[in-house]
């Protein structure tokens, strides 16, 4: 950890920024008509974080904003929040901004699921895919004194009586439950019998696991790594396709189930963009990805770089949608 000298100037800037944001956060989100300027250079770029300040999408958006400003991809880069319903409210607003080439929205796997569970009017097919940025992986854990020593033990018990294994995780239809459903599908457990107990966020589910109130838990690796390292949780498997560097946990594949799942995040843009407008946005994101600041932020936040753009990202999105839809249907959520 690097400790820098505190700088009064930075802090005054921070205080001013807060005051300005508080005063202006209403107006910023309200008037969002696109000027639709063509050409490669963007005079102004707005990033919609489809969640409240403080969440993962918000953090991604604001980190990207800083790197973009550093890279000079536009004169001004601005982040605004449109929270609600797993990001589908933001998605609907983005779909309504047809032809606006100065707008990006942060998205991710959670939104793919939320579109299904919320029966959203707009789907990710209604917008323009720009780039996938980062991936994070999930971990399956049990309390330290659990009888399940490895994923095989857990699955064996699960197969015998699916209801008897209560699995804690985040909100219904989210990444954690998607992984539970996929695991059930691949392991041959009836997904409708999965006893998934939804908690609001990793914190509360962690308490239930540590307190031994549930049999197992699923969450983002970053949220549980401290407990795993301290020996309070036993990690059975991570959802990465290959073993993770510096982390001594087997992958789900190594544990014998052919499955991997990445909680990815990326950018999409409004529908109806001209090819050069789309290209300008992709270039802006590529430029951002090249900055040292972005690379540092990836490391700092433990985000895996999974950068891919344009058509490739579009194909990936289609694949994700199919997989998620089938799981959520099996789980009885969509």
């Amino acid at each position: 950890m690097r400790i820098r000298r505190s700088r009064p100037a930075a802090f005054v800037a921070a205080a001013c920024a807060l005051a300005l944001t508080l005063a202006g956060c209403g107006g910023a989100a309200g008037g969002g008509s696109g000027e639709g300027s063509g050409g490669v250079a963007l005079d102004r770029l707005r990033i919609m974080a489809p969640a409240s300040p403080g969440g993962g999408w918000d953090l991604t958006s604001r980190t990207a904003q800083q790197s973009m400003e550093k890279a000079g991809v536009a004169d001004t880069v601005e982040v605004f929040n449109v929270p609600g319903a797993g990001g589908t409210i933001g998605l609907s607003r983005l779909a309504g901004e047809r032809g606006n080439g100065n707008l990006l929205m942060t998205t991710g796997l959670v939104m793919v699921g939320a579109v299904q569970t919320n029966d959203s009017r707009h789907t990710l097919r209604d917008v323009t895919p720009i780039a996938r940025l980062t991936s994070a992986y999930e971990v399956i854990v049990v309390p330290a004194d659990s009888p399940y020593k490895n994923l095989g033990d857990l699955i064996a018990a699960w197969k015998k009586d699916p209801g008897s294994v209560a699995i804690a995780g985040g909100s219904a239809g989210g990444v954690d439950q998607i992984l539970a459903g996929l695991l059930a599908q691949k392991a041959g457990v009836d997904p409708t019998k999965v006893n998934y107990v939804a908690f609001s966020g990793g914190g509360q589910s962690l308490a239930a696991i540590l307190g031994g109130k549930v049999d197992a838990g699923i969450s983002g690796l970053a949220e549980y790594i401290g407990q795993i390292k301290a020996g309070k949780l036993r990690a059975l498997a991570v959802s990465s396709p290959t073993p993770m560097e510096g982390i001594d946990i087997p992958t789900i594949k190594q544990a014998g189930v052919d499955l991997s799942l990445a909680n990815w995040r990326g950018f999409v843009a409004p529908p109806g963009l001209k090819p050069d407008e789309k290209q300008a946005l992709i270039q802006a994101v590529e430029k951002m990805h090249g900055t040292e600041q972005w690379q540092q932020a990836l490391e700092k936040n433990n985000w895996k770089d999974s950068f891919t753009t344009g058509e490739e990202f579009k194909a990936f999105l289609d694949g994700e949608r199919k997989q998620v839809t089938s799981v959520l249907k099996d789980l009885g959520l969509a």
Partner: peptide
Amino acid sequence: LPGIGPAMAVALLLPVTFTLDP
């Protein structure tokens, strides 16, 4: 101020305090 709570204030300050000593 009603509505604006400490959560929002900290969230908005977060990116700008990056350079501060933790």
